[in-house]
Amino acid sequence: MMNRSEEKPPTRIAALADQCVQCGLCLPVCPTYALDRNEAESPRGRIAIAAALARGQVEPTAELREHLDHCLGCMGCEKVCPANVRYGELLVETRALLGPAPGRPEREIGLIRQPMRWRRLRQVLGGVGFAGWKSLVAKSLPEKSALRSALALWPRTPLPAPYIPQPASDETPDADTIALFPGCIASVEDADAQRAALTLLRAAGYRVVELPAFCCGAMDLHGGDAANAKRAAAQVDAAWRSAKAAHLVTITPGCIGTLRHALPGVRVADPVALLAARAERLSFRPLQARVAVHLPCTQTNVARSDDALLRLLRRVPGLDVAPLPKPPHCCGAAGTHMLEFPERAARLREDALRQVAALAPQRLLSSNIGCRLHLAAGMQDARQWPHQHPLVLLAQQLET
């Protein structure tokens, strides 16, 4: 019998699609179906499109492809599916079969996936006050330009201090060893969260090995660029093997699914899950504040660490923790979706920001750097909340 690794992609896609029983339970949790009320913009519709493409029953027209490209990959459908359809796997396989979209913003993606280049650009443009006049540059660009969308995401906050890996501590040699994966843009823009994760994990008794910063391949894997995704997976595998760790963690939930794809059988987790398992070792100083907690789709549906995060935050005395209600299901960032489909992403973001405003917080927390930059780009006037990674708040309040 042919195993999965030997199956040809169209055969594999058709087999995955055949698992769908067409019950429609995925429709109420699909953010793109909520936007359009169009069956082709639902998981059920996309599964039918993928099956027809794989069997050669339809041609991969631009219109059909767009329905697949609109998918945010939030995996809400997988979480509620009674037939356990592996929708994420089907989506990745189908996009790989089609290849990258003709309008994919390769230049912008190439910059994001290279941390050193991104930091240098931030330093240079920060030195000339770019954040203050970026809107003038943006207005000179075509309305649907990916570069214009990227400029909207340009951080308003100062560039964080560089994250410098530290040697592993041998103070607790009997503890599980954890490899901490920094990622690409997160290793620059969330450098403070990397340091916070290290502080918290060591305080909880874990031994931490820090991996080098590079792209895990998530943007390529979900964008149909199978060759680049495969090269990134090989780099992930080499770094993991050299770490000789029991767990692999990353502060960016958006990387978790891709890391699991690259390292089948390896325990890849959100650090908050491991911290919650040893919560009794952590003590926090009081903080009288109300925080809105945006839970990224990947944290809820892939890492499934949302409950662990909320439990940890609620251990901070005096902290009023208010998670965003559902819907909305997705803020619209979704990797490169906010660059490729800015109008659709903005509509989803507006739903999320309305929910934040209703909670009247003093601070907004979100674990995913892409989500935070996307949400910040939509904050105007009275909706200007300080925002940070929840691990930073926890580390700031940690009793040492």
Rank of each mutant, 00 (worst) to 15 (best):
R278D: 04
T250L: 08
L136F: 15
G205M: 02
N3L: 14
Q235V: 03
L324F: 05
L98M: 09
A138R: 15
L153P: 01
K326C: 12
S367C: 02
A175R: 03
Q362D: 14
S135Q: 15
E210P: 02
G183M: 01
T199P: 07
Q123S: 14
I251D: 04
I112P: 07
V272T: 06
C20M: 07
D270E: 10
D190W: 13
R119K: 14
A193F: 01
D69Q: 08
V21D: 09
L35C: 09
D270P: 09
L90T: 03
S283Q: 09
I47Y: 12
L282I: 03
E340H: 07
P327H: 00
A203H: 15
A146N: 09
L398E: 07
E7H: 07
L201G: 02
T11S: 13
I178S: 05
L159K: 15
Q362K: 07
K230S: 15
A239K: 10
L136I: 04
K79D: 12
N84H: 13
R363A: 12
L310K: 07
G183Y: 00
P102V: 08
R86E: 15
E41M: 12
V92P: 05
L359Y: 09
H247N: 04
A197I: 00
L141C: 03
Q362M: 02
P386L: 01
T258W: 05
C330R: 06
G110I: 01
A395C: 09
R311H: 10
S5M: 14
S366P: 02
A83R: 02
S169Y: 03
L324V: 15
S42V: 08
K8S: 13
P167L: 12
R86C: 02
A333T: 07
E39T: 05
P182M: 04
A161E: 15
P142L: 13
H222E: 10
